[in-house]
């Protein structure tokens, strides 16, 4: 069935297309809108964008597969992405990841059964001066220690209960 988006989301798609001299150039921006709206990039969304931009849907699949930030699978409410490239590793990223694995009871690449947290290891987030660090959804959390990680997890759990 053809995907339908609410009027305000449709308006965002149209504004994205209008930004560029060629429709295809709006591919990345449209995928962001779809992911933000649906939580992940669905097949239906890819077909919708292909229609909108008048390009083959295979092109959209290729783009989604290429970029690390698009996901075709649902993630936890909070996506914890710990940077593990050199500066962060020198400053203890491995220990932060181990601590998170233990506190969340999951491995890297997994989501907690309550659907709250997904844990990932990612490459350099350009925050090397405040290492070790992680990105949770879009926000950066820097100069991490196990204690700070615990505080962040508590805070997010509280936030999730309030909004539940």
């Amino acid at each position: 069935m053809k995907k339908e988006y609410p009027a305000e989301v449709q308006a965002r798609f149209e504004a994205a297309v209008a930004k560029y001299p060629h429709k295809k150039a709006a591919t990345l921006t449209c995928l962001w809108i779809a992911q933000e709206t649906d939580g992940h990039v669905t097949l239906e969304a890819m077909e919708y964008i292909a229609d909108l931009l008048e390009i083959p849907v295979t092109h959209i699949y290729a783009v989604v597969g290429f970029y690390s930030m698009y996901t075709t699978k649902p993630l936890g409410k909070y996506h914890i992405q710990v940077c593990h490239t050199l500066s962060c590793e020198l400053m203890g990223a491995e220990g932060i990841i181990d601590h998170l694995k233990q506190r969340l009871g999951i491995n890297v690449g997994e989501t907690t059964p309550d659907g709250l947290f997904t844990l990932s290891g990612v490459e350099c987030l350009a925050s090397c001066g405040t290492a070790p660090m992680c990105q949770i959804n879009r926000a950066y959390y820097e100069n991490l220690t196990p204690e700070i990680v615990d505080q962040i997890l508590d805070q997010l759990r509280k936030e999730a209960t309030v909004h539940a």
Binding site: T85, L86, S87, E123, C124, A126, S127, C128
Partner: peptide
């Protein structure tokens, strides 16, 4: 900006 060790443009 994504060269590991670089965080200035940000």
């Amino acid at each position: 900006e994504s060269e590991p060790g670089t965080f200035k443009d940000r």
